[in-house]
């Protein structure tokens, strides 16, 4: 393992998050076993008060996860000089087979935490806390995910050895590369655009539908549309948006756009994208509970708000990406 402050901080942050959740597990089990909203006993009161801690802890983990995601990519980027062939985060992540899974794991934890918080939020608005048990079951289910992600991250950092020969965005995301990201960018810019814009449009349309007339189909369509739009967005960034930003016909890299050389344009793209996808997925996460009596008025309200955020986020993202394409000096398509 490299003796790097950022690596140690990342691992510690993950460990703290995992430990916090682990420490909450017995409490979650106690809630699942003993929760009785009708009871006025002091034990029940103590359980209720404990739920505040867990919500706070989960919000904390969620926020830290977002910060960690950035720090992870940044650290990978800075470490690139340590590895032969690495020029940015892609190269560092490729040093061993755990790099990209670790990154994907972090993104997954981010979205799962967002969905849990959405469920938590609607539950806390109903006077009988109807989802308490489900919520804490889900929390327990989150635990192994967090543990696996921590393990991936640990394995990845442990396996980082200087002087490893790796391949970077030049080769990985260029058309000859194999694997998923290679294929996405192997897609020519034209077809990628044909996937990119309809997917964003679909997500926005579904979210607007849910916002105008919240309902079951609209909600699931929003969630599905958000998931598709997220994947299409990442593929689109790989296939053509990055090319226009770098003004280079072969530089497919999702990370370099986060650098100061490119005026941190990546943040402007990723921020609305991640927010929108999280909101869209959250709409789907709370929908199964829409028929619970005490939630019948709560869920449509919350869901509409989330859908509006998702629609705005995806629209903003698509607009920013288009702006960067139109403002670029690179010409991929001759008129």
């Amino acid at each position: 393992m490299l003796f790097q402050p950022a690596i140690i901080a990342l691992l510690l942050a993950s460990a703290v998050g995992l430990l916090m959740l682990l420490a909450s597990a017995p409490f979650a089990l106690r809630i699942i076993a003993r929760w009785d909203i009708r009871s006025g006993s002091e034990a029940q009161l103590a359980l209720e008060r404990g739920t505040y801690l867990l919500s706070t802890v989960l919000s904390f983990i969620f926020t830290v996860q977002l910060a960690k995601l950035l720090l992870f990519v940044f650290t990978a980027d800075r470490l690139a000089v340590m590895f032969v062939g690495a020029m940015c985060a892609v190269g560092t992540l490729n040093v061993n087979e755990y790099g990209f899974p670790a990154l994907l794991g972090q993104i997954l934890v981010f979205f799962l935490a967002a969905m849990w918080l959405a469920i938590n939020h609607v539950d806390a608005q109903a006077r009988d806390y109807p989802l308490v048990r489900i919520k804490y079951w889900l929390l327990l289910a989150l635990l192994p995910v967090l543990a696996v992600c921590f393990w991936l991250e640990f394995q990845y950092f442990r396996g980082l050895k200087a002087n490893v020969i790796t391949s970077c965005c030049g080769s990985l995301f260029s058309a000859e590369g194999k694997g998923l990201s290679g294929e996405a960018s192997a897609m020519a810019a034209g077809p990628a655009m044909l996937l990119f814009y309809p997917a964003q449009l679909l997500a926005v349309a579904a979210a607007v539908w849910q916002w105008r007339r919240p309902g079951r189909w609209a909600a699931y369509a929003t969630a599905l549309g958000s998931a598709i739009a997220f994947v299409a967005a990442i593929s689109g960034i790989l296939a053509f948006v990055s090319l226009y930003i770098y003004e280079h016909p072969h530089h497919h890299c999702p990370f370099c756009i986060l650098k100061s050389e490119y005026a941190y344009q990546g943040y402007a793209l990723y921020l609305p994208l991640f927010v929108a996808a999280a909101c869209g997925l959250a709409v789907g996460a709370i929908q199964p509970f829409a028929r619970v009596v005490s939630l019948q008025s709560v869920i449509p309200t919350v869901s509409r708000r989330l859908a509006a955020l998702a629609a705005l986020g995806f629209a903003l993202f698509a607009a920013l990406a288009s702006y960067q394409v139109l403002n670029s000096n690179l010409i991929l398509f001759e008129r």
């Binding site: 909203i37 009708r38 009871s39 006025g40 006993s41 009161l45 209720e48 008060r49 806390a124 006077r127 806390y129």
Partner: peptide
């Protein structure tokens, strides 16, 4: 605070089992 047992009604609504938040 909440009663250990029994009912408290406010304008007809039973509030004895409500969580602290409400």
């Amino acid at each position: 605070a909440r009663p250990t047992s029994g009912r408290v009604r406010l304008k007809g609504e039973d509030i004895s089992g409500l969580p602290e938040r409400f």
